[in-house]
Design a protein around this nucleic acid. Structure first.
Length: 256
DNA sequence: ATTCCAACCTGATAGC
DNA sequence: TGCTATCAGGTTGGAA
C-alpha cells in the first residue's frame, strides 16, 4: 500500500506519539528478513532512547534518537505503523514508552518492510541512493534523468534513485494526468512533457496527502485498477500492460 | 551503465 | 469444498 502519500500521512500521525518519548520496552517477533538490525541488537540500541525527530525520505521514515542514532523504517508492501491496536502474529515490532502512552506497533503481513538502527553518523546506502523527493520533482531534473534511458517513462518514475517516493499507483495516475503513455521511452520526453509530468506528480501526490489517502485514492484513481473500464475522460477502455514487471494502467487514447 | 529477473513473504481471489 | 494459479501499491543484488 504505502507510497509517498501514505508514508507522509503516517509520519504526521506518528510524530505526536513518538516525539519526546522514551522507549522502555522493545518487543519483536523472531529474527528474519524484516530486521536489518537483528532483534537482540535492536532492543539493546533502542532501550532508554528518546525520539527527537521524525522525517520522511522517499518511502522511508527516519526517526532521530537522542544520542544521534537513527531508526530507519520502511513499510514495504503491506507494512503499517500505528498505535492503539491489538498486536497479532504479523506485528513484528512493538515499542512501549515511559509515559505509559499507547504502544507503537509495526505490523507487516508480507514482511517486505524494514527496520534498521543506524549508529550516530552512520550513513545508509539505502538512503544515499535516493533521488530528490517526488514532491520536489523538477522538469529539468526529469529531463536530464530521462535523457539517455531507453527504458519506459513508467520505469523511470519507479526508480527511487531518480525520484524518491513514487510507486506503482501514483506513477500510473501521474502519467494519466500528464497525458503520457507509460511506454514512452524516457529519452523521448520533451521538455514540455517533463513540465507536465512534474506538475502531474505534485498534483497527484499532494492531493492524496490532503485526502488522507488511507487507500481511498484508489477508488478515486483515474486508471489504476480500472482495466477494461471506460476512461473517465473519453470512455475508451483502460488498458493494462506489464512494464518492468509491474502492472501499468493507461488510456490508449488520452495518453501518448 | 542499464536492464532483466529472481528472491524475499503472506493472503486474497479467480478458475477448475 | 478444495485445490492450484495468479496477483498484490517494494526493493535488493546478481547476472546478462
Amino acid at each position: 500500500m504505502p507510497e509517498l502519500p501514505e508514508v507522509e500521512i503516517t509520519r504526521r500521525r506518528l510524530a505526536p506519539l513518538l516525539l519526546g518519548r522514551r522507549v522502555v520496552e522493545v518487543r519483536t517477533t523472531r529474527d528474519g528478513y524484516f530486521f536489518l538490525t537483528p532483534p537482540r541488537e535492536l532492543r539493546r540500541r533502542l532501550l532508554g532512547r528518546r525520539f527527537e525527530t521524525l522525517e520522511r525520505r522517499g518511502k522511508y521514515l527516519v526517526a532521530g534518537l537522542n544520542g544521534g542514532e537513527r531508526l530507519l523504517l520502511h513499510l514495504g508492501m503491506t507494512g503499517r505503523l500505528f498505535s492503539g491496536g491489538v498486536p497479532d502474529a504479523h506485528t513484528h515490532l512493538r515499542l512501549r514508552f515511559e509515559d505509559a502512552g499507547p504502544e507503537l506497533l509495526f505490523r507487516d503481513v508480507r514482511k517486505f518492510g524494514k527496520v534498521q538502527v543506524l549508529a550516530a553518523g552512520e550513513s545508509s546506502p539505502r538512503l544515499a541512493r535516493l533521488g530528490p523527493d517526488a514532491l520536489a520533482a523538477s522538469p529539468a531534473q526529469l529531463h536530464t534523468a530521462g535523457r539517455r534511458r531507453r527504458a519506459p517513462v513508467k520505469t523511470l518514475l519507479l526508480d527511487q534513485s531518480v525520484l524518491a517516493g513514487v510507486g506503482n499507483i501514483y506513477a500510473d495516475e501521474a502519467l494519466f494526468l500528464a497525458g503520457l503513455s507509460p511506454r514512452r521511452p524516457a529519452c523521448r520526453l520533451s521538455r514540455q512533457d517533463c513540465v507536465l509530468l512534474a506538475r502531474a506528480l505534485k498534483r497527484v501526490l499532494r492531493r492524496a496527502i490532503s485526502d488522507g489517502a488511507g487507500g481511498r485514492y484508489r477508488d478515486e484513481g483515474r486508471v489504476y485498477g480500472r482495466a477494461g473500464e471506460p476512461c473517465r475522460r473519453c470512455r475508451t477502455p483502460i488498458r493494462r500492460v506489464v512494464i518492468g514487471q509491474r502492472s501499468s494502467h493507461y488510456c490508449p487514447r488520452c495518453q501518448r
